[in-house]
Amino acid sequence: MPMGNTQPSVRPASAGRAGGAAVTPAAHRHGTRPRRTRGGLGAERYAPYILVLPAVLIIVLLRLYPLLLGVNFSFTGDGAQNGTAVGFGNYRELFGDPLFRTALSNVGLLVLLLPVAVAIPGLLATFIYLRVPGHRFYRSVYFFPAVLSPVIVGAIFNLLLAFDGPLNAVLGSFGVGPVDWLGDPDIAMFMVAGVHIWATFGMALVVFLAGFATLDAALLDAARVDGATLRQVVWHVIIPALSRTIQFVFVTTMIGMLTSMFGLLFVMTSGGPEGSTYLPEFYIWKQQGQMNRPALASAASTILFMIMLVVGLLQIKLLERSGKED
């Protein structure tokens, strides 16, 4: 952070304290203590609250409060009924819409695929941490897909999976296919989910690699001396030690799947074929924009929020429990 060096003159006089990594922490701290404590026992007592204050304030004002407004909005009508209360009318309409039900069952499918989406980056991070040959290289390139926006990832896979595209050409040379990857309602959802996993595993990888920073290397060495297999190392050392990271990746991967597959869906299938790849997020977008049903979209959003809340908290509880058992 080069900025640090350009700013010293702006800092208050006491800035000198921070200078010099050579000063040992203890001596350094000793010198400043009196001034600090006099600064107010109150400040110290409320320190935790002060630390969380900016985050809580922003989240409450700019996320939870608008959420309440949105939920409120979902009980009003669209079009001619704009602004009038319709009770649970929007929710009834949603559950009567086969398309929304498809979207919900696809959510179920994605939740089932979740362990795969977590295991892949987890294993890869483990191997990189264990320094498999070429680990530096993998660490660099595995992040490549993550920098591409979903729209371009979708556009690329659209081509690769096209009926006359390279994948079918390769399969054709083995006498298999051709398969209409994105045109067959039984296959398309898996393709989209697969591409999403491919496009985002780099992000989870980065989080896992950070998690390894807290791993006690002595444990690993001990396991190696005992002649543990890779499997055993993963199972008995790495997973328990990284339980919090795994929990985190589980929750955020779920959120990614449920709220950021829009770009992929839009480009790869547009919710089709036959509506088989609808997800709530795509449904919301469609109702809000093309269908001009903002209140109905709000109701769908509220349901999506509830689902994520329930599944997310459930995951946290489950993973916490299994972490404790270990």
């Binding site: 996320r63 949105g70 903002p294 979209a297 929020f305």
Partner: peptide, 14 residues
Amino acid sequence: LAGLFIPFQVIMVP
């Protein structure tokens, strides 16, 4: 954590 589960679309208009 609850803030994490809010998709942007739901709060976009408010």
